[in-house]
Structures are given as C-alpha cells and as structure tokens.
Design a protein around this nucleic acid. Structure first.
Lengths: 198, 198
DNA sequence: CATGGGGTGTTACCCCCGGTAACATGCGGG
DNA sequence: CCCGCATGTTACCGGGGGTAACACCCCATG
C-alpha cells in the first residue's frame, strides 16, 4: 500500500477517535483504533501536532471555503453577514467534535502567546479582514480597522457559538439575529432603561 | 506556620514560576521554586487545577472589580463602553503573564466542551450580561440578547486583545476606538467601496 | 521526664503521556 | 539465493500529574 492512501486511512482512524474521545485523544488510542502501534503514526506525521494539523487541514478546508463563499455572496450587506454567521454556526453544529478540534489552540507554545485563536480560526479572521478591506470604505484607518475587526468578529462568534453549542438556548436563526444585531449597533442604539445610566 | 500564610507564600512561588515559564509550568517546578516538594502542594490545593484556580482567583479579583466598576461608571454610554474596553486592555497590558493565565482555558475536560472562555472570562461575560440587562431596554428578547452579547463581547475583546498584545499594531486608545466603533455599527453603516458588493 | 499525636516534610513509587531506538518480518529485483 | 526496503513490532526514555508510606519536630498531657 503506497503512502498517500495509507495516510488517509490513518487520518480516518484518528478522526473516529477524536469524534469519540475529544481533541485530547492520545496517540496510543489513535494507533489502536487504526489497528497499529505508535511508531507508524510518528513515521507518517512526525509528531502529534503534525497529525493534528493534517487532521484540521482536512476539515478546515470545507468550513473555510464555505465561509469565504458566504463572505462574497451577492446580497445586501446585512443579509450577507447573517449568511456568514449562519454558515459558521451550521458548520459547528453539524460536527461538534470537529469544531472542538478546529478551535482547540495548539498547546505547544508554553508561553501561551497569541493562543486565543486556533490556526483554523486565524484563517477565518484573515478571510474576514480581506472581505472588509475589499468591500467597505473605512477611510485612512481601513487596514487597522479591518485587521482588528477580523479578529474581533472571529472571537465574538467563537465565544458566542461555543456557548450556543453547549447550552442550545435558542434556534440557530435567532442566534444569527442576535449576533448580527450586535454588529449593527443595536446595543449602542437601544433606549436606556428607566432609572439606569445613559 | 499556620495554614493561611503558608498558602499565600506557596501561591507567591507559583506566581513567580508562571511569570517565568508561562501557564504550562509543572508542579515540580513550582514546588522547587517554593523550596519544597510536590506532596505539600497537593496537600494544600488538592490537584493542579485547584492551584491554578487559587492563583487565578487572586488575580481575577482585581481585573473583575475594575471591569465591574467601569461598567457602572456614570458616563455617556459610548464613553462608558470605551472606558470598560480601556480598563480591560490596560489590565492585560500591565501584566501579560497574568493575562495568559486568566485566559488559559482549563485543559482538564477532555471533550473540550465550553472551553472557549476561561472561567475568569466567563465571570466577565456574566458581568457584561448583568450590566446590559440592568441598563438597556431590549424588549422581550432581552435575556437572550444580554446573555449572547455578554459572551460575544467578551470573546471579541479576548481575541482582539490577544492579537493587540502580541503585535502591538497601535496605541491602546486607538484599539479602544476600533472596538467601540465595531460595537457602534460602523461596519454596518460604512459606505460600500466602488465596484464592491453592497 | 516520658509519651503520643498532629502537622510538615521527605523519598519512592504508580500510570500515562509523547517520542524513539532497535529489532523482526514479508516481499520484490539483481 | 540474497539483498534491500518498507512495514510492523517490542521495549524503552524522560517527564508529567498524583499518591502512599515513612521521618521528624514540637507541644500538650500523664
């Protein structure tokens, strides 16, 4: 059996284990699921992060492509943003364990620098940044704003989506509305409650 | 030496090690820094997460109190939000390693459920939720919106703040402006670029 | 003065992790 | 026939979190 298909079936085994045991699954467990032993995994993927990266790459492609496509859908801006949010939430809803894997920051760096967003999410953040820069006129501050907002929106959807996936407080469509409303300044524009601060 | 002061000096030692080695510091290293051995740490804190929790609790108090105070400052709403953002960013700027510790999600849960926000940040999210519910009139959807937005805003500031701390792309005040602008719907309201989508 | 707790500390160990070295086995081509 | 190569194995290393069992010291009590 040549190298490529072998890699594929090892990745399939790793996938099953991670679906079952979560992103912390051990190399032993993955090897056992594949019916082999550890050194073979290491021959194919170098080390654990290599395996995880190969695995996330496979899954990232779909979600990232879907988000990118949604970002360029020819819709009214509000509808487009809602569409992007919906695509993201639908993606994480359909395969929760994959989502856990994608959003798991690599715990390789002991200092923890720049770990808030996992690599897959960093790609989404860049995609948002690009879309904002390409579509919206923000004046001279555009580059800084677009980069900041790319990260900010990604983190916002990550945190909200994580909570939503865990608690299921409402249907997906309402979550999309709630997040789009926030981006549309509904918090800023809402009337103050009587007796409250301005 | 009685129990309380002893705990304090053990926590101080743990603090030094984590400032030096990051949040992944081992129990052995912490014990060595304290001039003792592991079992004593375990007698005082039960297990690793107990130690980490005790440590984060100490540091969380300050930041959380500062954010809570900022959330109730008698200012115009926009100024208040900017103030909150500034307080948070100033906090993470002044003690980066502490911030890394606070935002490090506990890697105890192997499924990774609900891990996007570390406990300290979850408290901040609840604080925001409370403030929104107390100050803003959002109609019948208020509870859901407030909870969603609490998480969303926390995640947004986490991701953006992490990136800012790592790259330092601009002074703090500008970062505050960029984030407040996003919450004020500047992305939604901005003019489209010529030839771009709506 | 002896004695016996209880807290503080130690050594030495357990199991599991990621990762690797060294050895077995099967198989195609000179 | 025998070599070389890939595929697989067992057995190990260092280090992680966590614990059991033992040593010590101080102090109250008879």
């Amino acid at each position: 059996m040549s190298a490529e298909p072998r890699r594929e079936q090892l990745l399939n085994a790793a996938d099953r284990v991670i679906q079952r045991d979560g992103p912390g699954a051990s190399m032993n467990a993955i090897a056992a699921e594949a019916g082999i032993t550890k050194p073979i995994l290491y021959r194919h993927f170098g080390d654990r992060t290599g395996l995880i990266r190969a695995l996330t790459d496979r899954h990232t492609t779909g979600l990232l492509a879907a988000v990118r496509a949604a970002l360029n859908e020819p819709l009214e801006r509000r509808d487009r943003v809602e569409h992007v949010l919906d695509v993201y939430l639908a993606g994480i809803e359909s395969r929760p364990q994959v989502y856990r894997l994608l959003t798991h920051p690599e715990h390789g760096d002991p200092t923890g620098a720049g770990q808030a967003l996992a690599p897959a999410l960093r790609q989404i953040a860049e995609e948002i940044t690009r879309a904002v820069q390409a579509q919206v006129d923000l004046g001279p501050d555009a580059p800084l704003l677009a980069e900041t907002w790319g990260r900010a929106i990604t983190g916002m959807v990550l945190a909200a989506g994580d909570w939503w996936l865990d608690q299921r407080p409402c249907p997906r469509a309402r979550m999309v509305q709630a997040l789009a409303d926030l981006l549309w300044g509904r918090l800023a524009a809402a009337a103050p409650l009587p007796g409250a601060l301005g």
